[in-house]
Simulated scan of single mutants.
Amino acid sequence: MSSYIWKQILHEVEKSLDDTQSCINPPASNSQIYLLEQTLNCSLPGTFKEYLLTFNGQRLVNTYPYTPFLGVHYFLSSKDIIEIWTTMNTLFNREEPLEWIEENKIKSVIWSDKWIPFTDFESQQRLILDLNPGKNGISGQIFLYHSGMDYQEIVADSFEEFSLNILKRLQEKDYATTDHIIRFNDDYI
Results as ranks from 00 to 15, higher is better:
residue 144 L to C: 11
residue 37 E to Y: 01
residue 107 K to Y: 04
residue 164 L to I: 09
residue 104 N to A: 11
residue 116 I to A: 03
residue 49 K to R: 11
residue 35 L to A: 07
residue 151 Y to P: 01
residue 108 S to F: 04
residue 174 D to T: 00
residue 157 D to H: 07
residue 66 Y to F: 12
residue 175 Y to N: 02
residue 81 I to D: 04
residue 142 I to N: 01
residue 150 D to P: 00
residue 46 G to T: 12
residue 97 P to H: 05
residue 171 Q to G: 01
residue 23 C to Y: 14
residue 150 D to W: 04
residue 143 F to I: 01
residue 168 K to Y: 10
residue 165 N to M: 13
residue 72 V to L: 12
residue 187 D to C: 06
residue 77 S to Q: 10
residue 31 S to F: 09
residue 148 G to T: 09
residue 166 I to N: 11
residue 2 S to W: 08
residue 2 S to C: 14
residue 182 I to T: 06
residue 16 S to Q: 15
residue 133 P to H: 08
residue 104 N to Y: 10
residue 147 S to G: 08
residue 157 D to Y: 03
residue 112 S to M: 07
residue 48 F to P: 01
residue 175 Y to S: 05
residue 120 D to T: 00
residue 132 N to V: 00
residue 166 I to A: 10
residue 62 N to W: 11
residue 157 D to I: 00
residue 96 E to P: 03
residue 79 K to D: 12
residue 171 Q to R: 14
residue 38 Q to K: 14
residue 175 Y to E: 02
residue 73 H to A: 05
residue 22 S to G: 09
residue 49 K to S: 11
residue 130 D to A: 04
residue 173 K to P: 04
residue 153 E to D: 08
residue 140 G to Y: 00
residue 74 Y to W: 13
residue 2 S to G: 15
residue 10 L to M: 15
residue 20 T to V: 15
residue 75 F to C: 07
residue 151 Y to D: 09
residue 127 L to S: 08
residue 165 N to Y: 13
residue 19 D to L: 11
residue 3 S to C: 12
residue 163 S to C: 10
residue 157 D to S: 09
residue 98 L to D: 14
